[in-house]
Design a protein around this nucleic acid. Structure first.
Ligand SMILES: [Zn+2]
Ligand SMILES: [Zn+2]
Length: 653
DNA sequence: CCCTCAGGGCCAATT
DNA sequence: AATTGGCCCTGAGGG
């Protein structure tokens, strides 16, 4: 079966083609395509498909010259300018040369039509050739020695990967030098246990919440979401306190601490939630949730509660059943919760390793924890996998944002009322935004360009612009705005701000270092699950979105003063990574016209305070002027949007 | 049996 | 003359 070869050849580096992301743009030149088909494994236009076939058939791929040191732009117009770069981009996008049939394969595939042609012509000798060659093929197929050539063709991605690995290894060796003492198992376990017990003392749980749960279990009522939320919040604080009691954790840089907490707090919450639902007796259930034995009135037989709704999906249920099975087969019990917590805390998702500064210390500690007892290593392997889905659901249901706020001082000027206002407004804004669906094709396109680390093509950016315009209009539904302004005024003031808001959004997306992180604010649960499934299907890491016109490492702006900001020099925690806080920023951008025209309105006063909060944080961390930073960013992005608008020809009148 | 999908070749238009 | 890309043909595979 020669044709089977089309599906087989996925090397690990060929992530794009392995996923088979369908889209309505060409992944090579970026033009929009009518068809929804894959060509040689990749979504492309007809032109790029034909070009690739010709290049491979005539074996010209390597001989194309380039005048521009192989860095030509490849888009709808320029794709004909440089064949070398076009072909290179075909390969980078994951097009597979082996999918182009060679003479033998062609003859085999189009046997009948050839026969028909032959009837009229003189292909006698061809037939013999044919059979000989076919034999040749079938023996050749049994023989899997053909990787050398493909490896060369895939070199850009390999190089990319190799660079990472090299850098990673360097960092590991560098840091393992200054990472001291190897602890033995028992002292490590003691350290963890002490940290845990101390945290238990330091972070007591509100009696009210516990009482609520006792009531639920006595009355067999469903678990009320607000109560569950409080329980999770308490567990979250406990986990934070636990992390701060651990010497090894406190020694990490702020960046790594933040990243670990942000990504792993939800795992811990997922762990206790799973166990809460899987234990068979009320007392055991509640012990996982509150770390203590809650007492019921005597002679009262409390009910075991199970809330399928809260888990979200069958996948989650299957995952946590797996977990339970493992726990019971290895004898893992509640008494091991501190070890499990440490495993959660120090686990690093493969996609995050790049963003960690001290990955070596972290993974070493994780390893040490894994070796505490015989079961830890085995359970740890699957712990994270089985928890990730639920963690995702929990964050989505109970925490609009992430978990970073803990270790950051807040501006005292920003009082509680404002915080509530912001939360309310941002969750409304976000609901509105998430409810505008995103086409599957667009999701696939975004994913593809992240996986292959290529710039987003212009047409896709325009599509995104339209999409986000729709999402931003959700702002019309904010009751805080409706109360003070008529719909007419709102529209007049908001409409001109849409491009600016889009820029702010791009800025937000760019400031995140991973794909899911950057997009999660704007997608619905289903859309995120769809992407996660795709990613799980065969990709180990997904890079950030890339936009060459905005993503510059440094830039210079401003009238009289020359200010140079280097993005990569500004620590990540200088910005609010929190969704809510980003949405606050978005709110400010969207309503800037309103603020100018109606400085006394609630939103104007709020935005003023919000700006103070942001700048306070930024200046505290970086010692740079937030105003300058904002202005320079704004002007840079503005020029970018103007260029988009020009190309789009929408402002031609 | 018909449909979808992803191959191939053809050839008018373009460069 | 060579290249490009829109269009149609072909056969595998699935319901
Ligand atoms: Zn193309
Ligand atoms: Zn070139």
């Amino acid at each position: 079966m020669a044709d089977k070869r089309i599906e087989i050849p996925t090397l690990d580096q060929e992530k794009g083609s392995k996923l088979g992301l369908r889209a309505r743009v060409c992944f090579v030149c970026g033009v929009n395509t009518k068809s929804y088909h894959l060509n040689y494994g990749v979504s492309t236009c007809l032109g790029c498909r034909a070009f690739f076939r010709r290049s491979v058939q005539q074996n010209k791929g390597k001989t194309y010259p380039c005048k521009n040191s192989s860095e030509c732009n490849v888009d709808g117009e320029s794709r004909k300018k440089c064949r070398k770069c076009r072909f290179q981009r075909c390969l980078n996008a994951g097009m597979n040369p082996e999918c182009v049939l060679n003479d033998d394969q062609k003859k085999k595939r189009f046997k009948r039509s050839l026969k028909r042609q032959r009837a009229g012509k003189k292909y006698q000798t061809e037939k013999q050739h044919n059979e000989i060659l076919l034999k040749g093929i079938s023996t050749k197929e049994l023989d899997p020695i053909e990787d050398n050539t493909t490896e060369q063709k895939l070199s850009p991605k390999l190089l990319f990967k190799k660079r990472f690995i090299k850098q990673y290894e360097q960092e590991v060796s560098a840091a393992s030098m200054n990472f001291p003492s190897k602890r033995d198992k028992t002292s490590l376990e003691n350290e963890v246990r002490e940290a845990w017990e101390q945290a238990l003392k330091m972070v007591p749980c509100m009696a009210l919440v516990k009482d609520c749960f006792v009531q639920f279990h006595m009355n067999e009522s469903t678990v009320m979401r607000p109560a569950f939320h409080f329980a999770l919040c308490h567990s979250k604080d406990l986990f934070y306190s636990f992390s701060q009691n651990l010497e090894s954790f406190r020694m990490l840089s702020a960046n790594d601490q933040g990243a670990l907490l942000e990504s792993n707090t939800s795992k811990f919450l997922a762990l206790i939630t799973s166990m809460y639902f899987l234990e068979t007796k009320s007392v055991d259930q509640l012990r996982w949730l509150f770390r203590e034995e809650l007492s019921f009135p005597k002679h009262y037989d409390p009910v075991t509660l199970f809330d399928y709704q809260l888990l979200g999906s069958d996948t989650v249920y299957r995952d946590i059943r797996n977990l339970l099975q493992q726990f019971s087969s290895y004898g893992v019990k509640y008494e091991h919760i501190h070890v499990l917590a440490a495993s959660c805390l120090f686990h690093v998702e493969p996609s995050l390793t790049v963003h960690m500064l001290e990955i070596n210390s972290i993974s070493k500690f994780f390893k040490d924890v894994s070796s505490i007892s015989s079961w830890t290593a085995k359970v740890n392997n699957n712990l994270q996998d089985n928890l990730s889905e639920l963690a995702f659901v929990l964050v989505d249901r109970f925490f609009v944002g992430s978990f970073v706020a803990n270790n950051v001082r807040t501006n005292p000027e920003f009082i509680v009322d404002d915080e509530i206002w912001l939360n309310e407004a941002s969750s409304l804004l976000m609901d509105g935004m998430c409810n505008i669906p995103v086409d599957k094709s667009v999701l696939n396109e975004l994913l593809h360009f992240c996986i292959t680390s290529t710039q987003l093509p212009e047409p896709l950016i325009n599509t995104l612009f339209d999409l986000f315009k729709g999402k931003f209009l959700a702002l019309f539904n904010l009751p805080q705005l409706k109360r003070e302004f008529s719909a007419d005024i709102l529209y007049q003031c908001l409409e001109p701000s849409l491009p600016g808001a889009f820029c702010a959004t791009l800025g937000h997306i760019l400031s995140r270092n991973n794909f899911m992180g950057s997009l999660s604010t704007f997608l619905s649960l289903q859309e995120r699950l769809y992407l996660r499934e795709k990613i799980r299907a065969g990709v180990t890491s997904v890079g950030p979105l890339m936009l060459n016109k905005v993503d510059q490492t440094s830039f210079v702006v401003l009238n009289d003063r020359v200010v140079q900001f280097q993005f990569d020099r500004i620590p990540r925690h200088a910005f609010f990574k929190d969704r809510q806080l980003f949405l606050g920023m978005l709110l400010r951008v969207l309503s800037c016209q309103l603020i100018l025209k109606h400085p006394e309105s609630t939103i104007a006063r709020f935005c003023e305070k919000f700006f103070l909060k942001c700048s306070h944080r930024f200046e505290q961390v970086t010692n740079l002027s937030f105003t300058y930073f904002q202005d320079s960013l704004a002007s840079l992005k503005l020029s970018y949007v103007v260029s988009i608008a020009k190309n789009q020809n929408i402002c031609t009148q």
